[in-house]
Design a protein around this nucleic acid. Structure first.
Length: 491
RNA sequence: GGUUCCUUGGCCGAGUGGCUAGGCAACGGUCUGCAAAACCGUGUACGGCGGUUCGAGUCCGCCAGGGACCUCCA
């Protein structure tokens, strides 16, 4: 397998050929959630985007280390850092829980939702609270290099000084003057030299429930720092891919670049990747905007905007039908269309297993395979990949109907191709396949009933045969008559 | 206001300057006892106005509309 994968590097704004730092291996770091409430549809986007990347890199034969953090401390609620409360702390106070109870609770539901969406677990899932020492060491490094200053027990990154030697803002395409002239002037920033300076270490007020001792104060690390510290720890001073949502590009990722560069003397990330947002009525879906639908609500249909429940695979397929760098707008119509399209694909997957080879193939399997790889190699173009898979669906259905032919070798290739791309790379699952334990009993019972119906049909007893079909349809079993008998599916 | 991205047929959503993306919906046909499914076929789609070019949805300019970031957010 020798594919040339191109990915869009946000830093250069170009598609670049992916050449891993160490041949045969790849390191990727993706910004994970702050676990202070339930995961929503927006969280599914990066999870699925980078799951797709992870799966494809694995498929290409690379040994991948996939690191995704859990933010469980340091993420402030308010823009004014001096009075802003830690998100986890606030939730703990409101719910009368230990902060770590809050973390555990929402981390568990996040993991469950991610498993529902069939995303693979990262190789390492480090938590900020478990890496206080590493973060303190990085603060010390940055202080030693002269790019940070201490102020009233807190430590801030000196953006202006950093910018004299490096370009602060290169990732998001801005410069310090722009930032200075276009930032709101906020109250309560007396501790900072400049409003755009950001906290590396924050002194905690006495009532603050999460704090750790340090040489500067009893406090907690700044939000941006965990990613720099933990990516360095687990992937090294230089690593291949850093991913996250587009909304994190500034300031979060910009700060990461500054921190790592200041501490290490060079940049860490070779390819930056950003997924775009999911919108609802054209506006970003975000917790802070209050227009979000949680994944649990989506899966159960329990939200006023939802006309029905949407299965995890429907959600996954819906997201994969748009390119990861495009915004995708939520609507019931779009989800329902995705549901039906997925159903069509899955039925074809089932049919594929039953196809009978014979004669010379009336189409080119190799061409289909090449199209699929080309789509993935072009910056993970999953919508194009899916369109090619649907081309194949038409062929599979035609073979089944006897209107196309496939030879033995091509059939083996085709099966392997579909298993690889649909299940292994796109990470889809056939949710309607009955569990193996019940499958046999169910199948035999339905076969028996349908054979009785066949007998009625042969006797032109349409009343009986229609009644059986209608009752089965009502139960969720779809019956299709064919020239030579019948077929059935669970709906 | 600054930076930046987008505007594709009824809906969603791809499009590297010339060749049918694809899905959903709709309509017609084949098949069928009837259905369903499947297959075949059907759409003056590219926000507006200019320009470059033999040729533009695709490049350039202007205009209109919208989004994202600029404060926490996946």
């Amino acid at each position: 397998m020798n594919q040339e994968l191109k990915i869009f590097n946000s830093l250069t704004r170009k598609k670049e050929i992916f050449n891993p730092l160490v041949p045969g291996k790849a390191g990727m770091y993706v910004c994970g959630p702050t676990v202070y409430s339930n995961a929503h549809l927006g969280h599914a986007r990066p999870a699925i985007t980078f799951d797709l990347l992870y799966r494809y890199l694995l498929h290409l034969g690379l040994k991948v280390r996939y690191v995704r953090n859990i933010t469980d401390v340091g993420h402030l609620e308010d823009e004014v850092e001096e009075t802003g409360e830690d998100k986890i702390s606030k939730k703990a106070r409101l719910e009368s829980l230990e902060p770590m109870e809050v973390v555990q609770k929402y981390m568990n539901t996040f993991h469950k939702n991610m498993a529902d969406l069939n995303t693979l677990s990262p190789s390492i899932e480090p938590r900020a609270s478990g890496h206080i020492i590493e973060q303190q060491l990085m603060v010390k490094q940055i202080l030693q290099k002269g790019f940070a200053y201490e102020s009233n027990g807190s430590v801030y990154f000196d953006v202006e000084k950093y910018n004299q030697q490096h370009h602060y803002g290169k990732l998001s395409g801005r410069n310090l003057d722009d930032i200075l002239h276009n930032s709101r002037q906020l109250e309560g920033q007396e501790e900072k030299k400049n409003p755009f300076d950001f906290a590396l270490w924050k002194k905690a007020s006495p009532e603050h429930i999460m704090q750790w001792p340090s040489t500067w104060s009893n406090g907690f690390p700044g939000w941006h720092l965990e990613c720099s510290a933990m990516s360095t720890k687990y992937l090294g001073e230089v690593f291949d891919i850093h991913g996250g949502g587009l909304d994190l590009q500034f300031p979060h990722h910009e700060c990461e670049i500054a921190q790592s560069t200041a501490a290490l003397g060079h940049e860490s990330v070779r390819y930056w990747m950003h997924n775009n947002m999911i919108t609802i009525n054209g506006q970003k879906m975000a917790r802070s905007l209050g227009n979000f639908i949680t994944l649990d609500e989506l899966f159960t249909g329990s939200h006023e905007l939802l006309q029905q429940a949407y299965s995890p695979m429907t959600v996954r397929f819906f997201i994969l039908q748009a390119h990861y760098r495009s915004t995708v707008d939520f609507s019931n119509e779009a989800l329902q269309a995705a549901e039906k399209g997925l159903d069509r694909l899955m039925k074809a997957m089932e049919l594929l297993e039953k196809l009978k080879p014979g004669g010379e193939s009336s189409f080119k399997v190799e061409e289909l395979a090449e199209n699929c790889y080309n789509a993935m190699n072009d910056d993970l173009n999953s919508p194009i990949l899916i369109s090619h898979l649907f081309d194949g669906v038409r062929i599979i259905n035609s073979i089944h109907d006897g209107k196309a032919i496939i030879n033995d070798a091509d059939l083996i290739t085709l099966k392997s191709l579909y298993n690889t791309f649909v299940f292994e790379i796109l990470g889809l699952r056939n949710e309607k396949a009955p569990s193996s334990r019940n499958k046999e009993i169910l199948s035999e019972a339905i076969e028996l009933i349908l054979q009785l119906r066949q007998k009625a049909k042969n006797n032109k007893d349409w009343a009986t045969s229609d009644r059986i079909r209608n009752e089965l349809t009502h139960m969720g079993i779809e019956v299709k008559d064919r020239k030579d008998g019948f077929e059935w599916h669970l709906m």
